[in-house]
Amino acid sequence: MSSPQAACWSQGTPVCTQVASPEAKEEEDKIGDVSAKCQVSHGQCNSFSLGNEQSHSQLSALSWKDITSALSLANMVLGLFSIFCSFSRKSQCASWMLLISFLLDTLIGTMTRHLHICSKLGAELNDFAIFTTFGLASALLLGVDGPLNGFLAIIYVLATSFRLCFCPTGGTPVSKGLPCPYASCVLASTSLLTKGNTFILCCMASLLILFMIDQSYYPHDEILESESWKKAVFLGGVILLFFSPFSLTAFYCLLWSLSYIFFPDALWGKAICFRL
């Protein structure tokens, strides 16, 4: 009896039969396992790299939040030192602390806006630092020797509280009422120039209270994010603060603050008007 392979050959149909050996099959299985492992390991590497990038960005954002919170805490500590100096009847030292806080507050605001830092804890800490430094510490420059000075200091603190509670900025390019740091800068500069004359300080504080509770709009100066001359103004204040006498620094900061108070749109609101 003929075999099936012989029958096919006899009919003219070519038949090619390959039978895989057990050794070749094992090698193919091994190659498939290796390729599958490589694909899995490659996917794990991709996911690991993505996870590293996300964790790095989160750590970077967290670190900048910590830095801004630390600066706000330093601002509050300066305010507490100013309060201590006022109780110790060292008005020059107290005014010096307030001028440093004024420049530091500008830096904190710039970092928060530029890095898009949004932290509830940081915002609350910054508000508390502003109230302590530019509210309590600034009001104590008026002195608490007499009833009139004490009453005016209380009104100044209440005006600062009103400014923080009922006139929030909320990310808008303008704010209602004179910002507290500029009012504090005016008081500190006046205290340095007049050697702590309480009568002049009380007159100046009465005007600043009206400016703070007023509903007029003041633009955000954004000194470090605007024109070059504004950056030069800030840099000049920093240089004079640490390398010049008290009188020159106080006169410079007083002119800076008064220019913002009386010419908010003509000088400090120009870039914002263009952006709007």
Rank of each mutant, 00 (worst) to 15 (best):
A94W: 03
C85A: 05
W229I: 14
T172W: 00
L187R: 02
L210V: 15
I239Y: 04
C273Q: 11
T198F: 01
F243E: 02
S86V: 06
G122T: 11
L125C: 09
L59N: 14
A183F: 11
K120R: 14
D214L: 02
S184W: 08
S69L: 08
H116P: 00
C38R: 04
S72W: 04
M212W: 12
F251W: 08
L80V: 11
C167V: 02
S244C: 09
V157H: 01
V19N: 05
S101P: 06
F134C: 05
Q44D: 13
I67F: 03
G150R: 06
L148R: 07
L99Q: 08
Y156S: 02
V19E: 06
T132C: 06
S226P: 11
S55H: 15
S161V: 07
K230P: 11
F84V: 00
F251N: 03
H220A: 09
P245W: 13
I31E: 04
E26P: 01
F102G: 04
V174I: 06
G146F: 03
L78Q: 06
S91M: 07
T112Y: 02
G109D: 10
C167S: 08
Y182I: 14
L210Q: 10
G79E: 05
L258C: 11
D214N: 14
G196T: 02
S72P: 08
I272Q: 04
G171S: 10
C118A: 14
V40C: 09
D33S: 14
L71S: 09
V77I: 13
K25L: 15
S95F: 12
K90V: 00
C185I: 08
L192M: 15
E23N: 10
K231E: 09
L187Q: 04
T194C: 03
F263V: 08
L192E: 05
S216Y: 15
P181A: 10
M97R: 00
E27T: 09
P4R: 13
G146T: 11
L187K: 05
C16P: 02
T133W: 01
Y156K: 05
S10W: 01
T68L: 00
G43Y: 10
F134M: 02
T106P: 01
C202I: 01
S35G: 04
F131M: 01
C85H: 09
P219M: 10
I108N: 00
Q11N: 10
P219T: 14
R89P: 02
S21L: 06
S21T: 15
D29V: 11
F274C: 08
L235S: 10
G135Q: 02
T169F: 05
G146R: 09
R163K: 15
S206Y: 03
H56D: 13
R275A: 15
